[in-house]
Design a protein around this nucleic acid. Structure first.
Lengths: 240, 240
DNA sequence: TTTATATGTCTATACAATTAGACAAATAGG
DNA sequence: CCTATTTGTCTAATTGTATAGACATATAAA
């Protein structure tokens, strides 16, 4: 019943994804092979390749010039993003000579479900701040996070974050001088439409999802985090 | 909820992806909502939902029963896979009451390119063993790895691995009592057809790609690794 | 048994994706 | 200037995707 000729993904998009990946890992630089050659290599019609290239050109990755060829626009090296106990977004980015920034997308209040209650060591139903934040480097969006804070302990976290654009500084304002990450759990998913838009990804872009818990110096949980990193342009680095 | 514009991805596949994700993170358990309700929720026709469900049933995730409803087959909790300096696949798996296993898919010899030479601290063109290995728990494939060893230092690694099914034991056979991981770099990609088959993924399944370097007790590089983890059923855990 | 609710199957239609072929237009190199 | 190469545009035919409606069939509960 299920026709596997195309598993629900258009061939031009598969070609586009393959090319994007080769651009991201540096296999494709400067001029890419002509359409006819790519069509042969992927086993598709030239028009299908053209559509894939058009999509990547739309993303700003490729540039086609009639008579000359098609070229890669950016050198496009993946940004290394170190993750550790003391990971601080702003420091991470600044260390790589880029200008960090943070923006509050949304903020509301929710109640703790069983999972969050267990993570934050509070009762089920406890009121929480939920923040949706976007993090950029040199104006390029790198990740979006959803974070949960105990309303009781951090009543003004939303306003503090909105003013400073940095969780670290917002926590300082709440009297918390230092904190660290306890653990990070990683999976990969397809970006939701919302995240894809926020991260300027193609509608089926991939994200690495990091669920993390931050704790204070007395090992009490501060915040639960769910961060989505754009998989094409970020490489998470763990030093052991 | 689902974007109306078709960006090269069939709507039935987006519905299938959304449902698969909800199954994976536990939002959907036991009986799922009826087709008509899902159609309404996703803003698509009932036939489109049916096709998505058929795809997931094909993967063994769902089971439709006429007159009763559609049910989730597995509880489908992601297997937590701890990653650290002393990560050992067999120990990791055994600790979770599962039976680990390893199988050699392919072995050949290659020469070091610039990247490998820099990682393994050898000259460009140095002969290397390249091993393609599959790792399973309770017979379920979890990851595939490509690993590179200096031929000079580990001449018999292929045979040793083939006999023991464990890198740790193969290295012991070469006189290396202990080793540890220096760093892990993570990205996410769409599975190649080869990897998808080896990992029993749907043809467009996602993998987490971990590039790692193992070093001996004197900090000399032993092996370069590129491991692909099935993203739907594995969660990588980093303790800091 | 009757009813409401589910999934299963069929037909039909409109639109998108893919392939194919032909030719135009720009570029680079003898 | 001529030629080979490469991207750009057009038409046409075929296959895949999505919607719509009708009805069959199985299940559980009143």
């Amino acid at each position: 019943m299920l026709d596997d000729r195309s598993g629900g993904i258009a061939r031009w998009r598969r070609v586009a994804d393959a090319l994007r990946q080769e651009i991201a890992d540096g296999s494709l630089i400067d001029r890419i092979p002509p359409e006819s050659r790519l069509a042969q290599r992927f086993g598709v019609n030239r028009h299908t390749v053209r559509r894939a290239i058009a999509a990547l050109a739309d993303e700003g990755l490729l540039r086609a010039e009639q008579g000359r060829g098609t070229f890669v626009n950016r050198p496009a090296e993946r940004l290394a993003y170190p993750v550790g106990a003391r990971t601080r977004f702003s420091e991470n980015i600044a260390r790589q000579q880029r200008e960090p920034g943070g923006r509050l997308i949304k903020a509301d209040q929710v109640t703790a479900d069983a999972r969050l209650a267990s993570i934050l060591e509070c009762r089920v139903g406890a009121p929480l701040h939920r923040l949706e934040t976007l993090h950029v480097a040199d104006g390029v969006p790198l990740s979006v996070s959803t974070s949960w804070f105990l309303l009781e302990r951090f009543p003004n976290i939303v306003q503090d974050y909105a003013e400073s654009g940095s969780i670290t500084r917002a926590l300082e304002a709440a009297g918390l001088s230092d904190y660290r990450r306890r653990e990070t759990r990683l999976t990969a998913e397809r970006a939701t439409p919302n995240d894809a838009q926020a991260l300027s990804l193609s509608p089926d872009g991939l994200v690495m999802v990091a669920r993390a818990v931050d704790i204070d110096l007395e090992n009490r949980p501060i915040q639960a985090l769910r961060t989505r990193f754009s998989a094409d342009w970020i490489e998470l680095v763990f030093r052991h």
